[in-house]
Design a protein around this nucleic acid. Structure first.
Lengths: 138, 138
DNA sequence: TAAGCTATTGCAATCGAATTGCAAATAGGC
DNA sequence: GCCTATTTGCAATTCGATTGCAATAGCTTA
């Protein structure tokens, strides 16, 4: 279980307590291929004896500390995913299927030069979210 | 009040009843420069004697009928805006400032050819949402 | 234009995610 | 091992979204 030891070190490094609930929450996020909602994480951790609220607070704490990120993908549910190791700030675009709700992480999306300028007139873009119909839903 | 008469005709054309609450809701959306939340619309219409729930249902009905569109812009609140006259399906991208919450409608945003292909592998994109820090918030 | 059918409304109630309060439990420094 | 500040667990609250149902009111038609 070196994953656990690693997580423990990361949390301790932040001056926070490496509690079982906290470490398990972090490991769970890291085990998922997609951002997970609070409900999903709770559903997985409650059977292990961890409380819903504790999970909730840890998810938010992890975000606050840069170990995870929270995003709203269009269905009124916060989703959490671990920060990319290395650069905590790197966010990748997401694609959400409006039919089945499936969330897909996308490596890279670029805007055309013109669109970049347009968006620059408005502000600094830090996050891109695409919505539509996934191929499975046709 | 030809705006009203126009709205009435549009609603009637859909085979729906042109009730005061419904028409007023539609006119209100059309009077706004930005997508409005249910709360915002209610706040404006309740003093006029229209019920919160009625507004809620009309907003959703209008969306279902193509006269308005609903989107989730990242703050867990549905926002409604009238469909662009002409083509009901046209959606334009939105930019949301994560600091002040201001929503800006963008005329057009294009992805680079490569990004388009990437996204095509995943599904058909119907909506683009950009988030970041607006120029006012620096 | 009055009657009748059905869509719509108003109000109360419900739902579920998000969030908080507080006392009990516990991680980690000493 | 002890002590204290952090964290947890559980109950309770908030708030937007949503529903049930009886009352009301558009609109069609006779």
């Amino acid at each position: 279980m070196e994953m656990m030891a690693e997580a423990r070190a990361e949390v301790r490094e932040l001056g926070k307590r490496a509690t079982p609930a906290r470490l398990t929450t972090l490991l769970f996020l890291r085990s998922q291929a997609r951002p997970a909602s609070h409900a999903e994480v709770s559903r997985a951790l409650e059977p292990l004896g961890f409380d819903k609220t504790t999970v909730f607070r840890n998810l938010n704490d992890l975000c606050e500390w840069g170990l995870a990120q929270k995003s709203e993908l269009g269905d009124h549910v916060w989703r959490f995913e671990p920060s990319q190791s290395g650069s905590h700030r790197s966010k990748h675009p997401h694609f959400v299927c409006v039919d089945c709700g499936t969330v897909t992480c996308m490596d890279q999306i670029q805007l055309t030069r013109g669109s970049l300028e347009t968006s620059r007139d408005i502000g600094k873009v830090t996050e891109i979210l695409l919505r539509g119909h996934c191929n499975d839903c046709n």
